[in-house]
Design a protein around this nucleic acid. Structure first.
Lengths: 228, 228
DNA sequence: AAGTGGTCTAGACCACAAA
DNA sequence: TTGTGGTCTAGACCACTTG
């Protein structure tokens, strides 16, 4: 442990000891002060390294209680939620978009339930389809708070997906994966057989008030991938 | 900006300026040195705050190039990957498990493709079913490197899922959501109609060498949720 | 060449929770 | 009460990358 010290080096050494069970799961590891002395660096450097491991769930740290190796570390996977158009273009394909309908309508009970108690009675119901190289890519079935986007905002050319990402920040939301059988209308739009298994992605976002609830229904065979 | 300064305070102030477009998207923000002076704290504190925002994707930082507000911040969602049994018990239900088969077999090409070039020719092929209150919950279709778990490790009582989580750490892996129509055999095991839309979750893990590739196929209606 | 973020250090004080 | 992590500071040097 000589040469230019980095906190990453300290982190990797700690990681090694965890994996080797030199620091057994569930047990306390040495103080920051002791480790700093042993590794020949400042306490702040050890702190940064251990904090990083705690952030990723491998260590648990408590004032006065010391640092322990997490017993059953929870694996976490991070998904990025891109703009659909960018998602398609990243594959070197041509993204297309067509608005199917945009009406003010009473919000169905199940949508209101996930958006919260302060959901407006009526919201904009927007249906659109995204295409890749002219093949159907996904259906967008969205409920949008009209106070966020009034009638002067139209989604003929720019998708609501893209407009929202670029203009609205949100403080909280939910994301949910599910599978569903293609209904006849959906099958016709996506160019697949009725009953085909489709991957769906439900998303809701809100700040003080609800912003939007959207279900994206992907064409058959679509996969959502991420690295661990 | 007085009283006991925290890096969180600095972060929140920066966040406010980003949301207010005081720092317009895509543009450079002041130096760490300037900000530290303006806010009356040390550069390290500003550094910590801005680094945090950069980690969550709202800022982009480059040496010599300064810090800019990310143009189209990528939304990220974090999923935890629990042990299936704990997942079920967390709902207050009773988790059950039954091993269906466990054989050494040649690895199909598509599995070998995702596991990497150094995939063994033969791996253990394990099929099992998880139940909740005696109702089918999900099918586990796993390929497991026999060098990781030899024949002395059996999965009659403890699922491979649980054994792996508790004994194997891994350095990298992939995770993938997909939808599929229930095949007759799957439908029989899950107690649903053939052709029903099922949510599938493919996962691979490896260290130096491949560990496992597993597909979990959930009973109809299952949703995987997370907060944003 | 020079400006900017990345990191380290030594020391200090504080906040929290366990003893 | 006291030990441990959380954070701050002022200063320093380094690494990258842009002009």
């Amino acid at each position: 442990m000589q040469g230019p010290l980095r906190w990453q080096t300290v982190r990797d050494e700690a990681l090694r000891r965890i994996r080797n069970h030199e620091w057994p799961a569930g047990e306390r590891i040495p103080d920051e002060v002791d480790l700093a002395e042993e590794l020949g660096c400042a306490r702040a450097t050890v702190n940064r390294a251990l904090r990083d491991l705690a952030d990723s769930g491998l260590l648990e740290r408590r004032r006065r209680g010391g640092t322990t190796v997490t017993l059953n570390p929870v694996r976490k996977a991070v998904f990025s939620i891109p703009i659909i158009r960018k998602d398609i273009e990243a594959r070197g394909q041509t993204a297309g978009y067509r608005l199917l309908s945009d009406t003010l309508a009473p919000v169905p009970a199940e949508i209101a339930a996930v958006l919260g108690a302060d959901t407006p009675f009526e919201m904009r119901h927007i249906m659109a389809i995204h295409t890749t190289d002219d093949a159907p890519f996904c259906l967008e079935d969205r409920w949008l708070n009209p106070e966020i986007a009034g009638a002067e905002v139209t989604f003929d050319a720019l998708s609501a997906n893209e407009w929202l990402v670029q203009t609205q920040s949100f403080s909280s939301g939910t994301l949910c994966f599910l599978a569903l059988n293609a209904e006849p209308a959906q099958a016709a739009l996506l160019g697949c057989a009725p009953g085909a298994a489709l991957l769906g992605l439900d998303r809701t976002t809100r700040n003080e008030h609800p912003i939007t609830a959207v279900r994206l229904i992907y064409a058959p065979g679509h996969r959502v991938e991420t690295a661990l």
